[in-house]
Design a binder for these strands. Sequence first.
DNA 1: GCCGTTTTCGGCCCGACTGTTTTCAGTCG
Length: 576
Amino acid sequence: MDNIQIAEKFNHMAQMLEFKGESQFKTRAYTNAARTIKGLDEELKVLHKEGSIEDIPGVGKILKSKIVEMLETGTFEAYENTMDEIPAGIIEIMNIPGIGSKTARLFYEKLGVQTVDELSRAAREHRIRRLPRMGEKQEEKILRSIVRLKEDKDHGRHPYVLAKDIAREITDYLDLSQYIEKVAIAGSLRRKQDTVGDIDLIAISEEPEKAISYFTGMDKVEEILESGTTKASIIYSGNFHVDLRVVSRDTYGSMLQHFTGSKEHNIHLRKLALSKGYSLNEYGMNDESTGKLIKFSSEEKLYEELGLGYLSPELREDRGEVEASLRDKLPRLIERKDIKGDLHVHSNWSDGANTMEELAEAAIQRGYEYIAITDHSHSTGVANGLSDKRLLEHIDAIDKLNEKYDEIRILSGTECDIKADGKLDYSNDLLERLDIVVVAVHAGLDQDRKKMTKRIVFAFENEHVDIMAHPTGRKFGKRPPYDVDMETVIQAAKDNEKVLEINSSPWRLDLNDINAKRAKEHGVMLAINTDTHTIDHLDNIEFGINMARRAWIEPDDVLNTMSLKQICSRLDIPKE
DNA sequence: GCCGTTTTCGGCCCGACTGTTTTCAGTCG
């Protein structure tokens, strides 16, 4: 079992315990452990061998024994026993917005409701409203939530790029209101998470109620979920859940910090504040001894008061950033200006829309020193992959183009298929003639974990391979990552000195933040590439950088922050 | 279930909104 699978079992266990009415602190221990495990840089099975599982914060003797049991048997006894006690559909009911463990249990005990469909029927037959603390409105709310849940295959999550555009549309509109002085994006969108569950906004206003009714009165509001005197929640066209929090100017810093989260980061800060004799909330810091509230108009001041350096929103996941700041060991996160070139770009020789020349010009405009044109290999027939003969012509065409440009070096490359058996699509003789070899898995995505892992590791043993593109193959809304043992892949990349890509396509973002951070921790170099198919895609680099920053990546961790000279030396490319 | 340079027991982050109440439990972020 890998860390993700173990974390999921703990999360499931927590929900079941919550339903059973166990102590909230016990259930929280499971969810805390699950979250920490998801963010680990090392596989639990490795930590187990080293005997260091108990060093993981939030994992004590009991959870450790359950982890070991899972590593050995794939499950743990307490989990299986609890599964037997609780109908499977209950957890799904608890995932309906507005229904928690208490309400789910009420329905189960009083109405015998075990599935979402049974709940839906009970609501339609007006059996809900007869229960204590329930009424007509609750029934309607439940039915609406169920409908939304069923329509929504992505579980309410949207790719960052879509959420960002919607947020921009809304903030532009709010900016027009005379009651709103300033609007800012907060939440996971500000932390640049790869997918976003809801859009969180904050607005400064001296007339909060008017600001809120302006917000809830937008044309594209499909449903008002709640609307109070300081906050409101809506469903916006396109099934976007949007929250607005209205604040006064003097608490803006506190509110922005609070509403940016993450929740776990905030909890950590509050504990830190408590240890210093303060109680932290979204309005400021309460001095426990004097009862006086210290307000913050900026986030910087808040972090400073806690004895921390400013933490970029991308870092605020409680993955060690608070400790790093206390020890003054925060990373110098990579920025757009550090990028010197793009090493994964397609031309119209395969499935790109632009000529090599247009790509070169676009790269020059962006201030790049080099660009690698990496068209598909012949196995990817649907993408017009290059035959051996066309690959040789491709190399010649790039040579000619290089004669034309002084400002940029065009590297001849390929995005070469790793075939089902791990062999590459071109012979070594051909690969040797290229400046750069990017490899990727495009077909046979259903292979089992063992086969897929072996396939990739085998490819890494080829000396000509430089970079692996989109290492897990995920595409939002289309397919999950293929089943692969990333620990082994990362180790093989390290052993064979291969570079792993952070693919910047907003539909891929692969490696994701967690895997990229692991790769870094293992000393594997990364490349942030766009996989451009039309020149506009070159600007997707922004999304790759977001992911890299979330992974604590610094310029030195990234291949394409190197100058042309450095990269030629590293990849053994002839100078001219 | 975890955790501890004040603790191995007694804590465990904090506040807003809703729907049902008549003072608050449940849920959420």
